[in-house]
């Protein structure tokens, strides 16, 4: 019974964080930017066709996006209510975590939609920027400027420890294939993170107007998120495996829900807390602003 109550509390927290709190924070930020930095003064921030965003249509789009999140929260509450009414009991052998994971994926969909739109926005900004004078800081950007070697090797060390754990525990005939797939999968994810960071450090800026200081701050934040995410992924795999080993599979749904929330807190939450609107230099988006300083 206590496991069930724990699961309900954790799942409720997941619904609130991923579908109400963080989307609410994001929508609030968008509204703040639209009101404080309007297109008539900060034209570079609104490349066509995204200039509509400051109009009523844009405001209604933000509202609709938030409504979509509320609908997903409603779905989660419905699932929870159905579980309570049907007298659901978590399977002691585990397996129910797949439903928690699937619901978390649904919760992340609106955030991915926002991410895709941001990428398109930046792409339009870069097109607009093409005909303008361009400036650059005469300072080399290096990987170690944005991530400390200690953090990077810590993430690598934890991955290797996780790999050693799995290789020691699950290399029997029947488990070998699944173990190797898990290790290669997580290895590929970590490699992807590393390549993404390298690309962002050495590649072109997403937002061409962004000041050098803001760019560096964004890269440091991204590096922190990737390192934390890598460590969390390795840790959660070992924890769920330990839960299985000690016949505590019944906690798997709770662990997966905690993991999903952890990812959200240390990506979106960290981003919000480390970068307030006041921290960002919006003067670079003024139409009368010179090249990026």
């Amino acid at each position: 019974m206590s496991v069930l109550i724990l699961f309900y509390i954790v799942f409720l927290s997941q619904i609130y964080l991923l579908s109400i709190y963080f989307p609410g924070q994001l929508a609030k930020r968008v509204r703040q930017v639209l009101s404080k930095y309007p297109p008539d003064k900060y034209g570079k921030l609104y490349p066509p066709p995204f200039d509509y965003f400051a109009s009523r249509e844009g405001v209604s789009r933000v509202r609709n996006w938030q409504l979509l999140n509320f609908a997903i929260a409603g779905l989660g509450l419905g699932i929870l209510l159905a579980a309570v009414l049907s007298g659901y009991q978590p399977d002691p052998m585990g397996g129910d975590e797949i439903f928690v994971l699937a619901y978390a994926m649904i919760q992340f969909v609106p955030l991915f939609m926002a991410e895709i739109m941001t990428a398109k926005w930046f792409s339009r900004m870069r097109q607009e920027y093409a005909g303008r004078p361009k400036s650059a800081e005469l300072q080399p950007r290096k990987l170690w400027d944005v991530v400390s070697p200690l953090n990077l090797f810590l993430a690598l060390g934890i991955y290797l420890a996780m790999a050693a754990w799995f290789l020691q525990q699950h290399m029997g005939e029947s488990e070998r294939g699944a173990t190797l797939i898990t290790l290669f999968g997580l290895g590929a994810m970590n490699l992807g993170y590393f390549l993404l960071l390298l690309h962002r450090v050495h590649g072109r800026k997403n937002d061409p107007y962004k000041s050098h200081a803001d760019q560096l701050h964004e890269l440091k934040l991204l590096a922190s998120i990737l390192v934390i995410s890598s460590i969390a992924a390795s840790t959660i795999l070992v924890l769920t495996d330990m839960a299985d080993m000690f016949v505590l599979e019944v906690f798997d749904p709770v662990l997966i829900s905690v993991f999903a929330q952890f990812c959200a807190v240390f990506s979106i939450g960290l981003g919000f807390s480390k970068t307030t609107i006041e921290d960002i230099d919006f003067e670079v988006y003024r139409e009368d602003a010179g090249p990026v300083v």
């Binding site: 920027y129 093409a130 361009k134 400036s135 650059a136 800081e137 005469l138 300072q139 080399p140 950007r141 050495h202 590649g203 072109r204 800026k205």
Partner: peptide
């Protein structure tokens, strides 16, 4: 501009410069 930076004291002997690739990316050149 790099020569002006040296003459104006913004760039000093031993200062590191960005790689060709980085500067080309940043300036869309």
């Amino acid at each position: 501009q790099i020569k002006q930076g040296v003459l104006g004291g913004s760039l000093n002997p031993g200062d590191a410069l960005p790689s060709i690739r980085q500067l080309a990316q940043d300036l869309s050149l």
